[in-house]
């Protein structure tokens, strides 16, 4: 479904990604793990068109989307739930969700999708008239995910959804990611919580210094001695 081939991404003169190739198949949960500054967020930004890939190709459902306009990528069915949530603080929870549905077929489905989002995150329904800026960090994360679902994505990319959340909430978020996946949305997940994310993943990639150092099934990676030592501290 998503096919990334040999992309190089630069910030000015600094190369952030070196020849990255990666694949997400339909129905999969795929994790990308790695330390701070390894290039994980850069990878998602390149896929969603915020950053340009200098070379290499990104295709989605066999369509070349390399360096396409962000709006076109959303329309094609990829939604990006960014690091730091990036909700609209001075708009209500409901308005934030409505903003997630920018294209006609999404708008048509919006009322039903909002109900579905509320079923994943009942908390959002309680707060629908409240400004997003007044929500707690966990609630904002739920809102960012809910907004991402409003575009009816075939592939949802999540950047550090558990960052800064209380442990109990972290488990809830991972359960919901699994649920979203079971309902048919493929997931590309970036996490520092290596254990939890590999546990729910079909496959995973390890990103180190801008290149893919390792890849394999979630289980295999969890048992890999390098990962156990470097990322799990075992």
């Amino acid at each position: 479904m998503l096919n990334v081939r040999d992309i190089n991404v630069f910030y000015g003169d600094m190369q952030a990604l070196r020849g990255i190739s990666l694949e997400v198949k339909k129905g999969e949960v795929v994790s990308v793990i790695g330390s701070n500054g390894a290039g994980k967020s850069t990878l998602l930004r390149a896929i969603s068109g915020i950053l340009r890939a200098r070379n290499g190709t990104i295709s989605f459902n066999d369509r070349n989307i390399t360096n396409a306009h962000s709006a076109g990528i959303v329309a094609a069915g990829i939604s990006h739930v960014p690091e730091g949530r990036q909700v609209f603080p001075n708009m209500t929870v409901k308005e934030n969700l409505e903003m997630g549905a920018q294209f006609p077929h999404m708008k048509k489905a919006a009322t039903a999708t909002i109900e579905e989002v509320y079923s994943f995150f009942p908390r959002l329904k309680e707060r629908l008239g409240q400004n997003a800026g007044t929500l707690s960090g966990g609630e904002q994360q739920m809102l960012a995910m809910g907004r991402g679902l409003m575009s009816l994505p075939q592939l949802m990319m999540l950047d550090e959804p558990s960052l800064g959340l209380a442990p109990l909430l972290v488990s809830t978020i991972f359960e919901i990611i699994e649920k979203i996946n079971q309902l048919g949305t493929s997931i590309l997940l970036i996490e520092q919580n290596v254990f939890q994310s590999l546990k729910i993943s079909h496959r995973g990639y390890v990103l180190e210094n801008g290149t893919i150092a390792l890849s394999g099934t979630g289980e295999a990676l969890l048992e890999n001695p390098h990962i156990r030592k470097t990322y799990l501290g075992l």
Binding site: S48, I50, F88, P89, M91, G100, Q102
Partner: peptide, 17 residues
């Protein structure tokens, strides 16, 4: 609403399309 969204958070606005 789109104007308010772009004013509130540019990155968020770009990412919703």
């Amino acid at each position: 609403k789109c104007i308010r969204a772009a004013s509130d958070n540019r990155t968020g606005a770009v990412l919703v399309g």
